[in-house]
Design a protein around this nucleic acid. Structure first.
Lengths: 150, 150
DNA sequence: GCATAATACTTTACTACTCAAGTATTATGC
DNA sequence: GCATAATACTTGAGTAGTAAAGTATTATGC
């Protein structure tokens, strides 16, 4: 019926699962006035030393472009979750720092999203969750590898 | 360091893998003048009886809204890959049919995307691919379940 | 030290959607 | 059979990004 190769079937499953799994998490975050990408920003900042990071590094680690970060941070600065910090050594770079308010928003949103993530994985036991993570990681590495060839 | 729950770590891995894995496939398809979503349309049509399907069913099966389908099909009709077919019994519905040209485009693009998918999974053996698919499917089912609660 | 290149952004124009409202048609209850 | 609701779309307005070009600053080769 399908007649697609197994790797291609895996991709289709990956895409469908991604879309389905993300929806409830985004709904949960929207209560906190946060998009998933914004939560990623707060998460990344929360684990940086000094809660501060270069904008390009942030872009890289959350998987958006530099211009994406510019647009993403604008409203977050206005709300006061993050602030702009200049770099004395290099006037080109401007750092982003998580504010106290931003950390609090992150901690509250994280409680909600983790609970939602638990509901979304309710049919899996912990071993399956870890196994799935491992398999996805090796797929992830292959993908990086493959994209460098083309 | 991360201090996130395992389910949440799985979600992060899922998102990252999804984005990384899709890029090479989209690059491959772009050679054929096709986006990934458009390939999904052709794929879905190719496995429908008579190569024909209702627009809402199509929307559902590829994971976009009805209005998304309208916008998606417009250029595909112009290029001649699909055509609009009226339904005699119900004037509300308009069906989409894969044309001969559309089928040819699909078959060629599928050869490329399947090859790309193989490269993207080159670090996994067939057993791992199938296992990963199975785990993602159970995650998928949980997600549907969870979204119905909220 | 000075031209050229590279880096770190920002801005402009675009794409690919979404949601909500609008239109047309068919189904349902009484 | 006629009002009300439901269904199947389409359209208008908005969102979340991208890619390419622009600006400012720093690094590199000679």
């Amino acid at each position: 019926m399908s007649s697609l190769t197994h790797p291609m079937q895996l991709i289709l499953t990956l895409v469908k699962t991604h879309n389905q799994a993300l929806k409830p998490l985004e709904n949960t975050l929207s209560v906190h006035g946060l998009s998933f990408t914004e939560w990623l920003v707060l998460h990344r900042l929360s684990q940086s030393s000094d809660h501060t990071i270069k904008r390009v590094s942030l872009a890289d680690s959350i998987g958006v472009t530099a211009s994406g970060v510019t647009r993403l941070l604008l409203p977050m600065e206005k709300v006061g979750w993050v602030e702009r910090v200049a770099n004395a050594r290099d006037a080109r770079v401007s750092l982003v720092r998580l504010t106290h308010g931003g950390l609090e928003a992150y901690q509250q949103a994280t409680q909600s999203i983790e609970y939602a993530a638990e509901r979304v994985t309710n049919m899996m036991n912990q071993q399956q969750v870890e196994q799935c993570m491992g398999l996805l990681s090796s797929l992830h590495l292959s993908a990086i590898d493959a994209s460098q060839l083309s």
